[in-house]
């Protein structure tokens, strides 16, 4: 189960994307017809993936991704566009993780791109996990703050994962904030159905 947000001002394409994605990944995507509306939704909810057109009426897709990242939301974005200029691509690549898909596309092309982004997200998440652990266990001053920043990005990458909560609990424990640590630990256990903890399994479940 993944949570997806589809942002496109062309209703026909939005309809098709929702049908295809729910057909491919067993999910019910949310939709927005403008970047402004999408940002409002993203303030309230977290997604595993967002698809966005570059040419949107009002705020364009590139500005949308910039603002998303400024809000600390690092959800992968699949940019769907009939024409993406090299300048567009160069600019938006700084706000990764992103990928491009040209309209019109086949279902198979869409599946590969979405899967690629989800895998990339998983790799990124694992890299952050290792970094965050390193910072939590180092005794240098300031490293706990660095760990906290990374854990926040991990929250935005995989909102339904127990791992950031486990890490946060550990970090707060070190800072001596036992009460808040306990709350993160309960949240982690609530999300961690099989009670695996975060260091036991190599595999991180993205679905």
């Amino acid at each position: 189960m993944i949570d997806v947000l589809v942002v496109d001002d062309e209703r026909h394409v939005r309809t098709l994307l929702i049908k295809m994605i729910s057909n491919l990944f067993e999910c019910s995507p949310k939709e927005a017809d403008s970047a402004e509306e999408a940002l409002k939704i993203c303030d309230k909810e977290r997604f595993d993936l967002i698809t966005a057109d570059i040419k949107l009426s009002g705020m364009d897709g590139i500005e949308f991704i910039k603002r998303l990242r400024l809000r600390g939301i690092f959800t992968p974005v699949l940019i769907i566009s009939a024409y993406a200029t090299p300048e567009d691509i160069a600019e938006v690549c700084r706000y990764g993780p992103i990928d491009f898909l040209a309209k019109p596309f086949t279902q198979d092309e869409l599946r590969k791109k979405v899967k690629g982004l989800l895998d990339l997200k998983k790799d990124t998440f694992e890299k952050y996990l290792r970094e965050a652990e390193g910072f939590i266990h180092s005794n240098l001053s300031g490293d706990l703050d660095k760990a906290e920043q990374i854990i926040r990005i991990m929250f935005s990458l995989m909102p339904s994962s127990p791992i950031p909560h486990y890490l946060m609990a550990e970090l707060l424990e070190k800072r001596g904030n036992k009460e808040l640590a306990q709350r993160h630990l309960s949240a982690a256990k609530a999300l961690d159905v099989e009670q695996r903890g975060y260091r036991r399994g190599e595999e991180i479940d993205t679905d």
């Binding site: 062309e10 209703r11 026909h12 394409v13 309809t15 098709l16 929702i18 049908k19 309209k103 019109p104």
Partner: peptide, 11 residues
């Protein structure tokens, strides 16, 4: 003239 529920591309 395309109806609301048309889900597809246009060129």
């Amino acid at each position: 003239k395309l109806p609301e529920d048309y889900g597809g591309f246009t060129v």
